[in-house]
Design a protein around this nucleic acid. Structure first.
Lengths: 158, 158
DNA sequence: AACCACTCTTAACCTAGATTAAGAAATGAC
DNA sequence: GTCATTTCTTAATCTAGGTTAAGAGTGGTT
C-alpha cells in the first residue's frame, strides 16, 4: 500500500493496463468510465472520499475501464492480489455487489425520471459536485434528456 | 449446508424474506428476478448448474428479489453469514462483480441488437433452455422487440 | 382428438429519449 | 476584466423500442 496525490483530470488507469489496482479515496473524487465505439463516455462509478474504487475485472485480467480524477485527490493504492490475501475485502465486495445489483435493476425497470430521482436520493452529495452531463452519463441518458426531465419535474411542482 | 431438490416453477425466495440464502446449483436452472410497480418481471440473473446464486443485498438485510426454478433443480443451500466466515467466498464474489460490471456497461452503451448478440456469445447454453421472452427480459427489452431484432438479423445475412 | 395455455411472430401505431442545432449561462485562463 | 471553453437549456426533428392487437404454432392435459 502506498499513498499518492493526483490532480483533477489526471487519468490513473487505462483499458489494457496490466494488474489493475485498488484505490481507496482518502479525499477528492474519482470517476470510472468506459468509451464505446463512437467514443462516447459511459460513467460506471463515482468514487468520493471513503469509497474503494477498482475495475471489477477478474484477478490477473487487464483493466477494461478508465479511471480519472474529477477533483484533486489523495488515494491509497493497493495491489488486488495482495489485498485478496489480506482477507480484508469481503465487506466492500458485498457492498459493491449490492450497489451493482440495484443499478442493474434500475436500468432494467425504471424510466429516466425515476433513475434520476433515485440517484438524487442515493448520492445527494455527488449531485452537487459533478456536472449534470456526467450524471446523465451515469444514468444512461443524454444531457439534453436530463435537462428536459428536470424542467418537467420543476413544472409539475407548481 | 444442506441439499434440496425443487420442482420447475417453485419459488424459493420472495422479497422481504429475512436472512436470504446462498444457492449452489448442482443441476437444473434458477432465475433471479424483480417485479416493478406494474407487475412486470425483470430478470436479473440466470443460474445454470455450477453457478452460485444469491440475492446481492447487504448481509443481514432482507431479500429484495425473487428466485424460482426454470427447471427441476438440485441445490446446496448455505447461510450467507456462515459462508462469509468460511472465507471461501472471495473468488465467486469477484466473478459476480465482473459479470455485473459488464452488464451495466452493456446496458449503458449497447443497443438491443448488440446486447442480444453479446448474450448469445456469453451464454449460448441458456439461449437453448429458456423462452425468448425471458432473454428479452434479461436484456431489458420486450419479447416483440427481440423478435423484430432477430428477424432483421436473419434478413441481413442473406 | 379436442382443448387450453403459452409462446412467437407480424404489423400498425405511439412515445421516451436521441440527435442536431443554436443561444444563454457559468467557469476558467490570462 | 475579457476572451475562450465548457456547460446548460430549449426547440425541432427523428428513431429505437414500447404498446396493442391478432393470428399461427407448440405443447401439455384429460
Amino acid at each position: 500500500m502506498k499513498s499518492i496525490t493526483i490532480k483533477k483530470g489526471q487519468i490513473i488507469q487505462h483499458p489494457g493496463d496490466a494488474n489493475p489496482k485498488v484505490y481507496k479515496v482518502v479525499s477528492g473524487l474519482l470517476r470510472v468510465y468506459a468509451l464505446d465505439q463512437k467514443g462516447k463516455e459511459h460513467i460506471f462509478l463515482f468514487g468520493p472520499e471513503g469509497w474503494i474504487v477498482a475495475d471489477g475485472v477478474p484477478l490477473n485480467a487487464p483493466a477494461v475501464l478508465f479511471i480519472d480524477a474529477l477533483e484533486d485527490s489523495t488515494l491509497e493504492v493497493t495491489d488486488r492480489v495482495q489485498q485478496n490475501l489480506d482477507k480484508i475485502t469481503i465487506d466492500p465486495l458485498i457492498k459493491r455487489i449490492s450497489v451493482l445489483q440495484n443499478r442493474v435493476i434500475m436500468l432494467l425497470s425504471a424510466s429516466a425520471i425515476q433513475r434520476y430521482e433515485h440517484f438524487e436520493e442515493t448520492y445527494p452529495s455527488i449531485v452537487q459536485r459533478v456536472p449534470q452531463k456526467m450524471i446523465a452519463s451515469y444514468l444512461g441518458i443524454t444531457p439534453e434528456a436530463l435537462s428536459k426531465v428536470k424542467s418537467q419535474k420543476a413544472k409539475s411542482k407548481l
